Simulated assay, not measured.
Amino acid sequence: MTQISLSPLRHLGVATSLALAIGIPALTQAAEPAPALNLPTENGSVSLSDLKGKVVLLDFWASWCGPCRQSFPWMNDMQAKYSDQGFEVVAVNLDQDKEAATEFLDQIPANFTIAYDTEGATPEAYRVMGMPSAYLIDRDGNIHSQHIGFHNDRKDSYEEDIRGLLSTAQN
């Protein structure tokens, strides 16, 4: 499969359209270590190493992303439903203008951690090919699965993956 370069981030719209048009499924292999992540939030910072032992849904989004508007309510539901079992949603905003992200969040609030990467280094490390892109990371910090876009007809499958990882023994 041809790898699409997303540097700089302005090419994400083209990559999103291409990825969705050809229906790219999960792209990662089991047990691939998740790249390091340490990003600012409104209340400090978030690091994947600090979340080891939890199942993490790492979501990349931007204010201009239509499917992101659909995914946020679902991620709020998942955070509320599974946080007591060691589940954490971290959504990384990629807008260069933080005000655009703030306007989005005023309209569609997030009840989970929002991190900011205006430079775009994190999506490059994760080889993000479209918006939104979500990575389900197991308790050991390995990428379990990935999906590009948000599809309402696949919410049950997404949730099944979360439940499956939560059912594994905690280290």
Rank of each mutant, 00 (worst) to 15 (best):
residue 2 T to L: 13
residue 2 T to G: 04
residue 3 Q to M: 09
residue 4 I to Y: 14
residue 4 I to L: 14
residue 4 I to A: 09
residue 5 S to N: 15
residue 6 L to M: 14
residue 6 L to C: 10
residue 11 H to Q: 12
residue 12 L to S: 03
residue 12 L to P: 01
residue 14 V to W: 10
residue 18 L to R: 11
residue 18 L to E: 08
residue 19 A to S: 15
residue 20 L to E: 06
residue 20 L to R: 03
residue 22 I to A: 09
residue 24 I to H: 07
residue 25 P to Q: 13
residue 25 P to L: 09
residue 25 P to Y: 08
residue 26 A to F: 02
residue 29 Q to A: 11
residue 31 A to L: 04
residue 33 P to T: 06
residue 36 A to D: 15
residue 36 A to P: 03
residue 38 N to S: 14
residue 38 N to M: 09
residue 39 L to Q: 12
residue 39 L to M: 12
residue 40 P to K: 08
residue 40 P to E: 11
residue 40 P to Q: 10
residue 41 T to L: 11
residue 45 S to A: 15
residue 46 V to K: 04
residue 47 S to T: 07
residue 51 L to Y: 05
residue 51 L to G: 03
residue 54 K to T: 01
residue 56 V to P: 04
residue 57 L to N: 05
residue 58 L to C: 09
residue 58 L to Q: 06
residue 59 D to P: 00
residue 60 F to Q: 01
residue 61 W to L: 02
residue 62 A to S: 14
residue 62 A to N: 13
residue 63 S to Q: 08
residue 65 C to S: 12
residue 68 C to S: 15
residue 68 C to T: 08
residue 68 C to K: 07
residue 72 F to R: 06
residue 73 P to L: 07
residue 75 M to Q: 12
residue 76 N to P: 09
residue 77 D to G: 11
residue 79 Q to W: 12
residue 81 K to V: 04
residue 82 Y to W: 09
residue 83 S to T: 11
residue 83 S to C: 05
residue 87 F to H: 07
residue 88 E to Q: 15
residue 88 E to G: 00
residue 90 V to N: 00
residue 91 A to T: 02
residue 91 A to Y: 00
residue 91 A to M: 06
residue 94 L to N: 01
residue 95 D to P: 12
residue 96 Q to T: 05
residue 96 Q to L: 06
residue 97 D to T: 01
residue 98 K to T: 10
residue 100 A to V: 03
residue 104 F to P: 06
residue 109 P to Q: 09
residue 110 A to H: 03
residue 113 T to A: 02
residue 113 T to S: 01
residue 113 T to M: 01
residue 116 Y to R: 10
residue 116 Y to N: 12
residue 117 D to Y: 11
residue 118 T to E: 12
residue 119 E to H: 13
residue 120 G to Q: 10
residue 123 P to M: 05
residue 124 E to Y: 10
residue 126 Y to R: 11
residue 130 G to C: 08
residue 131 M to N: 02
residue 132 P to E: 02
residue 132 P to G: 07
residue 135 Y to K: 09
residue 136 L to N: 07
residue 140 D to F: 03
residue 142 N to R: 07
residue 144 H to W: 09
residue 144 H to N: 10
residue 145 S to E: 10
residue 145 S to T: 14
residue 145 S to N: 10
residue 146 Q to F: 00
residue 148 I to A: 02
residue 152 N to E: 12
residue 153 D to F: 04
residue 153 D to I: 00
residue 154 R to Y: 02
residue 154 R to Q: 14
residue 158 Y to I: 03
residue 159 E to P: 03
residue 161 D to K: 15
residue 162 I to T: 02
residue 162 I to E: 03
residue 164 G to W: 04
residue 164 G to T: 10
residue 166 L to W: 08
residue 166 L to Y: 12
residue 166 L to T: 11
residue 167 S to N: 15
residue 167 S to T: 07
residue 168 T to G: 02
residue 171 N to D: 12
